Simulated scan of single mutants.
Amino acid sequence: MTKLKLGPIEDDKPVKVTLELPAALHRDLVAYADILSRETGQAAADPVRLIVPMLVRFIAADRGFSKARQTSPSRVVGK
């Protein structure tokens, strides 16, 4: 069994976002969604729905961002 960084995708209210992705990145998202569906037993997720959890996980794991956010919260948008 493959150990992916993402778990099951939560069913959440969608927000409309327009974004252009390089074709290679889109192919990787499609492949990731396919593997994730096999690993979790869920129906194949729309690859676009992977973007938010991936970004959330990336930001949560970025120690430099976390440290900067704690030391100067007024400079970080959204804090």
Score class of each variant (00 low, 15 high):
Pro53Met: 00
Met54Gln: 02
Pro22Cys: 03
Ala68Ile: 03
Met1Gln: 15
Pro47Val: 02
Val30Leu: 15
Ala45Val: 09
Lys16Ser: 15
Arg57Met: 01
Arg63Glu: 15
Lys3Val: 14
Pro53Val: 01
Ala43Arg: 11
Lys79Pro: 00
Ser66Glu: 06
Ser37Trp: 08
Arg63Asn: 10
Val48Ile: 14
Leu21Cys: 07
Asp12Cys: 10
Asp46Arg: 14
Asp34Thr: 10
Pro8Leu: 11
Lys3Tyr: 06
Thr40Met: 09
Val15Asp: 14
Glu39Tyr: 03
Thr71Glu: 06
His26Pro: 01
Val15Phe: 13
Ala31His: 13
Lys79Cys: 05
Asp28Thr: 05
Gly41Ser: 06
Val76Gln: 01
Ser66Tyr: 01
Thr2Tyr: 15
Val77Thr: 10
Glu39Cys: 06
Arg38Leu: 07
Glu10Trp: 03
Leu6Pro: 15
Thr71Gly: 01
Val15Lys: 15
Asp28Ser: 07
Pro53Leu: 00
Val56Leu: 07
Val15Gly: 09
Lys16Asn: 15
Ser37Cys: 10
Pro47Glu: 02
Leu29Ala: 12
Asp11Trp: 08
Ile59Tyr: 06
Ser74Val: 02
Lys5Ala: 15
His26Asp: 13
His26Arg: 07
Glu10Pro: 09
Gln42Pro: 00
Val52Phe: 07
Arg69Glu: 05
Gln42Arg: 12
Arg27Lys: 14
Leu50Ser: 04
Ala68Cys: 11
Lys79Ser: 05
Leu36Ser: 09
Asp28Arg: 05
Arg75Leu: 06
Ala45Asn: 08
Leu19Glu: 08
Gly7His: 15
Ala43Trp: 04
Val77Lys: 13
Ala31Arg: 13
Ala61His: 06
Ser37Met: 08
Val52Cys: 11
Gln42Val: 01
Leu6Lys: 12
Thr40Lys: 10
Ala33Met: 01
Val30Thr: 10
Ala24His: 12
Val48Thr: 14
Ala68Asn: 08
Met54Thr: 01
Val52Asp: 03
Leu36Ile: 09
Asp62Ile: 08
Leu29His: 07
Gln42Lys: 14
Pro22His: 07
Arg49Gly: 00
Asp11Val: 10
Glu39Trp: 02
Thr40Trp: 07
Val56Pro: 00
Pro73Gly: 05
Val30Lys: 04
Leu4Thr: 14
Met1Cys: 13
Ile51Asp: 01
Lys3Phe: 08
Asp62Tyr: 04
Ala68Phe: 11
Ser66Asn: 10
Pro22Glu: 09
Ser66His: 04
Ala44Arg: 12
Leu50Arg: 03
Thr18Trp: 01
Pro47Trp: 01
Lys3Asp: 14
Ser74Lys: 09
Leu21Ile: 01
Gly41Val: 04
Tyr32Pro: 05
Lys13Ser: 14
Ala31Phe: 13
Leu29Glu: 12
Ile9Trp: 12
Leu25Asn: 08
Ala44Lys: 13
Leu19Gly: 09
Ala31Asn: 10
Thr40Phe: 11
Val15Glu: 14
Ile35Ala: 11
Arg69Met: 11
Val52Gly: 02
Leu36Asp: 04
Ala23Asn: 12
Asp12Arg: 15
Pro8Lys: 15
Pro73Ala: 05
Ile51Ser: 02
Val77Arg: 04
Asp62Cys: 09
Ala23Ser: 14
